[in-house]
């Protein structure tokens, strides 16, 4: 940002009625809406889980295809990434560019590991010998579990991927020499999004995975 325009912008950083920056209100409104997106997907999954629990007359045991160790690991990784995110926000608020960079990188790497696990999981499930779970079948018979499972977790994965690209954008920007505490708000908003996506996974993991072992 050139000096002149940075000056102009600082002068016009709008004073808001509530004191909360506009961008933050925007992000909160979006997250409220996003709750409904995931709410709809999770409800769809739960409804079908109950009413179409059989394949070829046999009770569906999805545990035959799930790999709970792997998913627990990737869950842990995703949750840990939130710590890096929080540290990145705190670093940029303090104006510590170097630490901001490392923490952004940590978040990105952990997010990417989570995504890699998901890609591995999906390919693994689709090709699981004898227990293939595809978008429309389980063990070769028509079924809805694959539909709700892939679309729900896939939507979540898409959210993570968008977050990773967004963070990559900030990481790249930090090398242009223009990044300053003036961008703390933007990084913080990115962080809000990231934490939200994590929280959604905290709901999805028990509801979609753990419940199959408990109930």
């Amino acid at each position: 940002m050139s000096d002149a325009s940075a000056h102009a912008l600082e002068h016009h950083e709008p004073v808001t009625s509530t004191g909360i920056p506009n961008k933050k209100v925007l992000m909160w409104a979006f997250l409220g809406s996003d709750c409904m997106f995931f709410g709809t997907l999770i409800s769809t999954h739960l409804i079908y889980r109950k009413i179409s629990a059989t394949v070829g007359g046999n009770f569906l045991d999805i545990r035959d295809v799930f790999d709970i160790e792997l998913t627990s690991f990737s869950t842990f990784i995703l949750l840990a990434s939130s710590l890096f995110m929080a540290l990145a926000v705190s670093a940029i608020h303090k104006g510590n560019l170097k630490s901001t960079r490392w923490m952004l990188l940590g978040t990105i790497v952990f997010g990417a590991i989570f995504l890699a696990c998901q890609v591995y999981e999906f390919t693994h499930f689709v090709h699981a010998p004898g227990n293939e779970l595809t978008l429309s079948t389980y063990r070769g018979e028509p079924h809805v579990f694959g539909s709700t499972f892939y679309v729900l977790t896939g939507t979540h994965g898409t959210h993570v991927a968008i977050g990773v690209f967004w963070l990559l954008g900030w990481l790249a920007y930090s090398f242009t020499g223009k990044m300053s505490t003036a961008h703390a708000l933007d990084v913080e908003i990115c962080g809000l999004y990231w934490h939200f996506v994590d929280i959604v996974w905290i709901i999805i993991f028990p509801v979609v995975y753990l419940m199959e072992y408990a109930l």
Binding site: T44, Y48, S52, L135, S136, P142, H143, V144, G146, S147, T148, Y150, V151
Partner: peptide, 9 residues
């Protein structure tokens, strides 16, 4: 997929 496909569940 089979979300609304009654022939497939």
């Amino acid at each position: 997929t089979n979300f609304f496909d009654f022939l497939e569940g």
